[in-house]
Amino acid sequence: MNRRSPAGYTAVPPWIYAVAGVGASFVLIPLLAMVAKVNWSQFIPLITSESSLTALGLSLRTSAASTVLCIVLGIPLALVLARGNLRGQQLLRAFILLPLVLPPVVGGIALLYTFGRQGLLGHSLELAGFQIAFSTTAVVMAQTFVALPFMVVSLEGALRTAGGKYEAVAATLGARPTTVLRRVTLPLVLPGLASGAVLSFARSLGEFGATLTFAGSLEGVTRTLPLEIYLQRESDADAAVALSLVLVAVAAIVVGLAYGNPQRTTKAKVPQ
């Protein structure tokens, strides 16, 4: 598409560009500083060491799993928040979005007191033969806890933009609610769902605090890439920097996929 209309007037005062430049530098310069710190001669061996690859693999697997969980749990939540008319819905939204502003370590503590061995549900789960603490499951749960709001926010916004008109028409054409959901609602909000999934994945990938508190840290089981970086920093700063760069690269690819093409986000708005 034509991204820049040559004659188009944009009402942006010039000084805005200066402040925007400061803002961009604030984000870009630290990233560049990190890149400058990379020990390039050792870069490949550092990031391909067994522990690094194990951590990266674990991170990708758990993030994928928690993204799936976010989709499964996030779609119903977003639908209820966008379309439902339950009492206390505002309150429900506030609580679901809480992990967005909560320090992840608080989320970790909350999960610990719920699913930990001594936790609210953990004791019954353990009696039933499920051990969550110190398992990869715990990592996925911690990631889902912090990533779910991203999915819900993104999807609820898309649902509200799409509105309920198409669903009403579909119903009068004889489609049952589940058919309407499958054939009308979800296809309409697919871009919102996709960007929600990408954001959830990115958030899961970066999750640290809740994982550390709730899941622990063991190579191949619970030590994801951020935990590996945190640990490497204690002994081998070069390795930590190299792995940080890997994480930045993966995150940049993921976010680029979600927001790189502005056409996709505008498509969320349905032509009238």
Binding site: F134, G216, S217, R223, L227, Y230, E234
Partner: peptide, 9 residues
């Protein structure tokens, strides 16, 4: 079951 990065943990 876990190797923590600090004694506190």
């Amino acid at each position: 079951v876990s190797e923590e990065s600090s004694v506190t943990d």
